[in-house]
Design a protein around this nucleic acid. Structure first.
Length: 266
DNA sequence: ATGACTGAGTCTCTCAGA
């Protein structure tokens, strides 16, 4: 089963590039971030006509996450638990950044699609929100790990885990994506017993998932790797491959992120 | 080549992204 995570930077602006990608790449499951759409505005019929089940958790203007799946989904939940200020009824967070569902293949897989807060400018309230959000994610990851079942947490983490994950790490030293607190909090998440899928298959520098629109970043391969798959042990045992589809960044009217994939023996 | 872009809403400017 092929599962992709893709920060599309606006479903309306990306509809051509996104549908072309779906047609060519044929993901079994796609976890989308930054749909920048309310649920009612998401063009679900376009994907339903291609055979996908569509579950969204959107808001006006910014953020927003979605799951497209060729397989049935069960127990869909929206929002990351543990926010102090509740938003819409039944949803814990004012910002639409998290969705979970169980993909009902031969082996059921719990998939969590997340769009972690950027956190800039740092330090400041937005950075504090990012770190608090990561603590809540850690609590949810602990719950999932305690079930000892296949589960994955994937999406735009807005974290550069290591120096080799940025073309110019010095330029990011004080940025919320690379600050020591951000990396330490990400490391604590991994240390619960999660496997970072890409680094379990591929070492070395030069592998990125985001290139800024500005200053010719793509042409210079001035990128960062911030979109990740974290797998429970039972899910990591199913992993057969993980790769970054960087070619998408060179397409017409691309997102600034590209898809990251896992292939699971499930 | 000292490359200031893109998307959405408040909509010809501002905010946010990373």
């Amino acid at each position: 089963m092929k599962i992709a995570t893709f920060n599309i930077n606006g479903v309306k602006a990306r509809i051509e590039a996104l549908t072309n990608w779906i047609d060519e790449a044929q993901p079994d499951v796609a976890l989308l971030q930054e749909i920048k759409s309310v649920d009612e505005g998401f063009p679900r019929e376009i994907f339903e006509d291609k055979g996908y089940i569509v579950e969204t958790h959107g808001q006006k203007g910014f953020n927003g996450v979605a799951i497209l799946s060729k397989l049935p989904l069960e127990d869909v939940t929206r929002g990351l638990p543990g926010a102090e200020g509740a938003g819409r009824e039944g949803v814990d967070d004012v910002e639409a950044r998290y969705i979970e569902a169980t993909v009902m293949g031969d082996v059921p897989i719990r998939v969590c699609g997340l769009y972690l807060p950027n956190g800039n400018p740092a330090p400041g309230p937005k950075y504090d929100y990012k770190l608090r959000w990561m603590e809540r994610l850690q609590a949810r990851a602990q719950e999932l790990l305690s079930l000892e079942e296949p589960a994955l947490l994937a999406g735009d983490y807005n974290i550069i885990p290591q120096h080799e994950d940025a073309a110019r790490p010095d330029a990011w030293r004080e940025d919320a994506l690379f600050r020591q607190d951000s990396r330490d909090t990400f490391r604590r998440l991994l240390n619960l017993g999660l496997t970072e899928a890409f680094r379990s298959r591929q070492a070395g520098a030069g592998h990125y998932s985001f290139w800024d629109y500005q200053a010719g970043a793509w042409d210079k391969n001035d990128g960062i790797r911030i979109d990740h798959f974290l797998l429970t042990p039972q899910c990591a045992d199913l992993l057969t491959n993980c790769w970054i589809e960087s070619e998408q960044r060179g397409r017409e009217k691309p997102s600034d992120h590209v898809p990251v994939w896992v292939d699971l023996a499930a």
